[in-house]
Design a protein around this nucleic acid. Structure first.
Lengths: 196, 196
DNA sequence: CCTACCGATCGGTAGG
DNA sequence: CCTACCGATCGGTAGG
């Protein structure tokens, strides 16, 4: 049975902070416990292992990215690959900015998962990237995007998106919405045809 | 006195591999020693601490980025901000692909440095990013780039560049040169004016 | 570069 | 959720 109580959620929250700030390997179970004002060993009343905490964060964040992308594509209500890619980029920025710490842990700490879990996440990441690449290919197909390497372009855009947690501040100069606008713009233009 | 012998260089090389693959915190001094077929304690005949190894990698890689950028801008021999930004992006891709493991360690593991060293690297990173931002601003100024947020654009491009180690393979489908071409193209276009 | 060793800390368990 | 505890491993030192 998977625990889903308030305490369990608190664990994921403080662990996300610490894993983001110092990395999974440099964060001890006692570091997490200290932030919750309990003893290190007491954490095991709620979780079976340290890796389970990482898994919980990574798995739920993967689901968040997938769900938000699904919704965005449904809402788009259009077959235009340009609009659909814009919706995907916007959704991604929204997911990242809504919880930058979890997004950052998801993007950088999954190598510390067990081999089986790592493989599972690897597949989901591939499928997610495939959406980007597919829409880029579609856009090239209809002549909306320049003839370019869709794989490189998808990596380019996704790397830029995943870099957001490194500099985003909730109380920063730009709101999450404005950042999303900028990123949609930069991403679409990077694929645009010359009109000179 | 800083040791610069062949063994010392080997240490940085295998440490770069391990720090890249598993992260600094998850790599033990004995892991590094094992790859060199020596005892864990023997490593301390060559280095004063584990952190000194990380520092050596990070510091030399920062220098490599700076030097290659300097050369590229000198070679550019032009005041055109578009050409100069292209040269900077190309130089960055070259530095990353010439040693992706070191580039990746530089980009992701510097948080494990001591506070003073972290601050030093932070300043150098800021200065480096400032070159990108400055050229973007210049390009906007002369009307070559669209009116956009230069800080966001610089983060966008630099994050994309720093994502390369995550997917680049030396024996992969694309040569380092071709990747550089693609990235120059994607980066410049992302800043381009509409001509519609 | 080795052997022998150090104190500290790690993730995790037992039993309440 | 606590106290008490476990074996393993950590970065690093002493002395050769």
């Amino acid at each position: 049975m998977i625990e889903t109580g308030a305490r369990r959620r608190e664990i994921d929250e403080v662990a996300s902070e610490l894993f983001h700030a110092n990395g999974y390997a440099a964060t001890s179970v006692r570091d997490i416990a200290r932030k919750l004002d309990i003893q290190g060993a007491s954490l095991y009343a709620h979780v079976a292992s340290k890796e389970d905490v990482l898994w919980s964060i990574v798995d739920s964040t993967a689901t968040a990215f997938e769900r938000r992308a699904d919704e965005a594509l449904e809402d788009a209500q259009t077959g235009d690959p340009v609009d659909r890619l814009a919706a995907l980029v916007e959704a991604h920025v929204e997911t990242v900015t809504s919880d930058p710490e979890r997004a950052s842990v998801f993007a950088t700490e999954w190598r510390h998962l067990s081999p089986d879990r790592r493989a599972l996440i690897g597949e989901r990441r591939d499928a997610y990237e495939h959406r980007f690449r597919g829409l880029i290919e579609d856009g090239i197909g209809v002549g909306a995007f320049r003839q370019t390497d869709a794989t490189v372009a998808a990596d380019f855009i996704l790397s830029a998106l995943n870099g957001i947690p490194a500099w985003y501040r909730e109380d920063g100069r730009l709101s999450a919405d404005r950042i999303a606008d900028h990123f949609v713009d930069l991403a679409l233009r990077s694929l645009s045809e010359d009109h000179r």
